[in-house]
């Protein structure tokens, strides 16, 4: 797992974003056990206290849950997961739209371009 962190945003927020992405993509499945804070810190090469903070924050957002004396796990609550996906999409669209906003382009012109990019990506993955 290789993540580059930028140095001006709180690292725990960057960790959360990273984990959310894995949840959205299915790399982290509902109910899956999370690595311990030390393991994750070691993987990401960051301070365990930062991972701790990210975990607490995610627990607060109910993205993670912890039963006593057990490792933290990804939420199984469909409502929370649905909300997460929706949020992720909203953010992506928001960023995309504001990025192409300066260019004068109609939706009809845009659609084929998006489709082409998507199919290119799928080819790359295969």
């Amino acid at each position: 797992m290789n993540v580059t962190f930028n140095k001006r945003d709180p690292i725990y927020l960057q960790v959360i974003t990273h984990l959310k992405k894995q949840m959205v993509s299915g790399d982290l499945q509902p109910g899956e056990e999370m690595p311990s804070r030390r393991q994750l810190a070691n993987q990401l090469k960051i301070n365990p206290n930062t991972v701790q903070r990210a975990y607490s924050e995610m627990e607060e957002q109910r993205l993670l849950f912890t039963e006593t004396n057990r490792p933290s796990r990804i939420t199984e609550d469909p409502a929370v997961l649905k909300q997460l996906k929706k949020e992720w999409l909203n953010q992506a669209i928001d960023r995309f739209v504001s990025a192409i906003d300066p260019i004068d382009l109609s939706l009809e012109d845009l659609m084929p371009m998006i489709q082409e990019e998507l199919s290119n990506r799928k080819k790359d993955v295969k």
């Binding site: 140095k7 001006r8 690292i11 725990y12």
Partner: peptide, 14 residues
Amino acid sequence: AEVMRETEGKSVID
């Protein structure tokens, strides 16, 4: 360091 990034958006080097 983390609080500095969060509250002022500054890196340690900044």
